[in-house]
Amino acid sequence: MHILQLAIPPDFPLPIPGNLSLLEFLIVLTFILHIVFVNFTLSFATGAVALEGAGIVKKSKRLDDMARICSFHASIHKSIAVVLGVAPLLIISVIYTQYFYTSTLLIGKAWLSIIILLITAFLLLYLYKFSWEKWENKKGLHFFVGLVASVILLFIPLIFIVNIVSMLYPEKWASANGFFHSLIHYPQIWQRYAHFILASLAAGGFYMYFYFAWKQKKQPLSDVEQSLKMGGVKVTFWITLLQLLFGSLLLISFRRDIMLLFMGDDLLLTVLLLVSILLTIILCGLLYIVTKKDTPNVFYASVICFVLIVALMGWMRHEVRESYLQSYMDEHPRTLDVQKENVQPIK
């Protein structure tokens, strides 16, 4: 009865093609690369729409120019984000097949809708970018196109989050009923969503600071570019402060024994968490200094801090999954060597 209720399928008889530790390292690395570009895309698309909207209300050309730069960056980064997403999806399919396939099929139709949603959002982003001048006198329509694209982009992460959270809870599969029900059925979903959206805004702000600080070395920045650079720093500073709160909310939404792993029960995980909090505080300090006095040293230090925080977050995220699945994986082992008797030709 126990197994029937959990419905964790046996692994395929064909073996996992490669060293497990190597694949785990690669999934963390490639996921970080992917998600950072997703962060940029989301933040520039929503940022462009917000700035354009503010520009319309305040009748400000300057805000409109800032919005336009954001939209340009959004449409480039979205191409990279999609491409980079292939690798982590490939690896998660291969090393967590029994959990990930089931959680995907439980929300099968929502999962398929990603294709239509992303195509629509991406086409709208191009229309938004390429029609900026042409539709100068149809500002409302232009703003609406960007808004629809942004809303779609803000919705899609929910599908992915439901999927990867649901794979951690095989005991809840039997009582789940499709995508929308899953949004409230599984714990952590909204905490993860909030943490992710805020991370996107912070990453986007940081990118603006990074990009224009780099550009500044070659040529002086225009007024608008300078505003984006300093605006980026401010956004990142405030959002990162907020993340200390939202990160904690996510931590306490974990199952108690897993939360406690990060609070002393496991030395490595506890150290990872403490270091990441410390680095976050340092980053906030550095960003604060930037708002007062921008120097190359502060710039490099903040870049290092940012990269380290992102890396630690990606690593901890993986450890959370491993901790949740550990007991199930012991009971339903993965195929690491070929089971010759189960891989027979059909004659």
Binding site: V82, S93, L105, G108, L112, I115, L123
Partner: peptide, 18 residues
């Protein structure tokens, strides 16, 4: 290619999973 092309490519994979 970066919209319909890329997304249907990933889409074959997303749909065969389902």
């Amino acid at each position: 290619t970066t919209t319909v092309g890329a997304m249907t490519g990933v889409g074959i994979w997303l749909s065969t999973m389902v």
